[in-house]
């Protein structure tokens, strides 16, 4: 049971697609302008992830390895089409309009394809479904956290609920620039947590490999 739950929780925190794997940055930056948009996007992606993971896992023995990517894309596109049709039918028109092109673009979302390739093609349907759900939930939560922070600072609201009365608003956070800034702070926070954990366990903290010393001074921070 614990291993089953760990498959699900994997996506929530340890391998959170946005904050750890850094996948699906395009929708993350584009539609996290408010918590509501983020929620809509997250749910749609979760549905596609779970569905495609399940189907791909079921078909994994019949798909020839040479053409697996096109096959995955076809399966994913099926689910994306279902989501799009559903949303056009039932979702609020405003949300639908805001998400716009980003719903069809789930087809090429790195998370979906990434999980299909990395997990669903190697595991059974139940675990794959769990993994898809976990990843989707992790994605949704990260997106909603981003969206909530941005919405709060930009308009003083969360889910269109006034939190700070008479907030003048900082338009910057509503713009893509704001997404970059808030995401950067989130990632910095993640690194800080990792650093603390390492220190607690008495290990040396190693900054992420992509942060090249020639351009970055992060180790100057961590050395102290």
């Amino acid at each position: 049971m614990s291993s089953v739950f760990s498959k699900f929780s994997n996506g929530l925190w340890r391998e959170n697609p946005v904050l750890v794997l850094m996948l699906g940055m395009c929708p993350t930056l584009a539609v996290s302008s408010s918590a509501k948009n983020a929620f809509g996007m997250g749910v749609a992606t979760t549905f596609v992830l779970a569905g495609s993971n399940l189907v791909i896992s079921l078909c994994r023995k019949v798909i020839p390895a040479q053409v697996r990517i096109p096959c995955y894309i076809v399966i994913i596109a099926t689910f994306v089409t279902i989501v799009e049709q559903l949303m056009q039918a039932y979702a609020p028109a405003e949300l639908n309009q805001m998400l716009g092109i980003f719903i069809p673009l789930i087809v090429v979302n790195c998370i979906v394809l990434g999980r299909a390739e990395a997990f669903a093609s190697k595991n059974g349907p139940f675990l794959s479904l769990l993994d898809g759900l976990g990843m989707g939930c992790g994605f949704t939560l990260a997106l909603m956290a981003l969206g909530a922070v941005r919405e709060l600072i930009a308009a003083g609201t969360i889910f269109e609920l006034q939190i700070i009365p008479n907030w003048q608003g900082i338009l910057l956070l509503k713009m893509p620039t704001g997404a970059f800034i808030v995401l950067a702070f989130f990632l910095a926070g993640m690194n800080l947590l990792k650093m603390r954990k390492c220190r607690k366990e008495g290990r040396a903290y190693e900054p992420p490999e992509e942060l090249n010393c020639r351009t970055c001074s992060i180790c100057k921070i961590s050395r102290q």
Binding site: Q168, I170, L171, L172, L173, M175, T177, I181, A184, A188, C216, S217, I218, K220, I221
Partner: peptide
């Protein structure tokens, strides 16, 4: 945002005062 996150004096790629000004221009 313009200076300290990059590591303080000498490490910032953008002029901090302009980062501040442009940020405000977009925000307000």
């Amino acid at each position: 945002l313009g200076k300290m996150v990059f590591g303080g004096i000498g490490c910032n790629p953008f002029n901090p005062a302009i980062v501040g000004r442009v940020g405000l221009l977009i925000a307000f």
